Amino acid sequence: MATKEEDVKLLGFWASPFSRRVEIALKFKGVSYEYLEQDIFNKSALLLELNPVFKMVPVLVHKGKILAESLLILEYIDQTWKNNPILPQDPYEKAMARLWAKFVDEQVGPVCFKSVVKADKGIDVAIEEAQELITFLEKELSGKDFFGGKTIGFLDMVAGSMIPFCVARAWEGMGIDMIPEEKFPELNRWIKNLNDIEIVRECIPQREKQIEHMMKVAERIKLA
C-alpha cells in the first residue's frame, strides 16, 4: 500500500545513478514521495543538515527517519513496504545480489569510468580492463530476463541505474561503444528489457543532457 506523500521525501540529483535507483524502487513499490532536486556542486543547507556525514544524495526521509546511502535505502524500502519484493527471499540469492551490487558500485562504476577517462595506460588497455569487469555481469545474466529473474529486482536497480544510463553514456560521449551487442548480447538484451518498463523509463535522464553532464564530470576527473 502506498504511503502518503508527506511521509516520504527523497533528496536527489537528476544525473545521479544512486538517486535514480531509489526512485525506481519507490515507483516499483507504489510509494508516493516528494522529490527534492539538489545541486550537488552547490549543496543546500537541507542536504547538509540531513546528511552531515557524507554530504551526498540520495537521502530518504520517512516519517522523520533519515537514511543515506542508496543500497541501504533500497533495503529499507524493501523491508518497509512488503509488496513487490526487491531482494530475493532465498538467503544465498540475497547475499549474492548484495555481492554483485557491491561489485557494480565499487568496481564497475568507478573503475570503468575513471580508467577510460584518464586512460593512463592508453585507451585500448582502458577499454579492455573495463570490458573485463563487465564480462562478469554478462555471465551472471545468461539465460535470464533480469538479474532478479523474470522481473526487476535489487541488482537490476543497482546495475541498471549505473551501467547503461550513466557510465555507458559517458563512454558514448567519447565515441566509445563499451557494450557492443556482438560482445555482450545478454547485457544488451537486458538493457532493452529495462527500457520496456515504464517506471524505469520515467527515471532515465534525457540522453543528450546526461552525456553532456558526464563529459563535464570527465573533465573534472582529468584535472583531479
Rank of each mutant, 00 (worst) to 15 (best):
T3A: 12
D7H: 05
K9F: 04
L10R: 03
L10M: 00
F13L: 00
S16C: 01
P17W: 03
R20S: 06
V22C: 09
V22L: 06
S32P: 07
Y33N: 12
Y33C: 05
Q38T: 03
D39R: 01
D39A: 04
I40A: 08
I40R: 06
I40T: 08
F41K: 15
L47S: 04
L50D: 02
F54G: 01
K55D: 03
K55H: 05
V57E: 00
V57W: 08
V57P: 00
V59H: 07
H62D: 12
K65V: 15
K65L: 10
K65R: 11
I66K: 08
L67P: 13
A68W: 09
A68H: 14
A68K: 15
E69T: 04
I73F: 15
L74V: 05
Y76N: 11
I77F: 11
D78Y: 10
W81E: 14
K82F: 13
N84R: 10
P85Y: 00
P88R: 03
Q89L: 06
Q89V: 06
Y92I: 00
Y92C: 02
A97P: 00
L99Q: 08
K102M: 02
V104I: 07
V104Y: 00
P110E: 06
P110W: 04
V111Q: 09
C112G: 04
K114A: 14
K114M: 07
D120R: 14
G122Y: 05
I123M: 11
I123N: 13
D124S: 14
D124T: 15
A126I: 04
E132C: 08
I134P: 08
E138R: 12
E138I: 14
L141M: 10
S142G: 12
G143I: 15
D145I: 08
F147R: 00
K150Y: 07
T151V: 13
G153R: 04
G153P: 00
L155V: 05
M157V: 11
M157D: 03
V158R: 04
V158M: 05
V158L: 04
A159Y: 02
G160P: 01
S161K: 05
M162R: 13
P164K: 09
C166S: 11
A168Q: 10
A168Y: 14
A168T: 10
R169K: 15
R169H: 08
W171L: 14
G173I: 06
G173C: 12
M174P: 03
G175M: 12
I176M: 10
E181G: 13
L187M: 09
L187G: 10
N188W: 14
N188A: 14
R189F: 15
N193R: 09
I199S: 13
I199M: 12
R201V: 06
R201C: 05
R201M: 07
R201W: 03
E202S: 13
C203L: 12
I204A: 06
I204W: 07
I204C: 05
P205H: 09
K209Q: 13
Q210P: 07
I211C: 15
M214L: 15
M214D: 09
M214S: 14
A218P: 03
R220H: 08
K222M: 06
K222T: 05
A224L: 15
A224C: 11
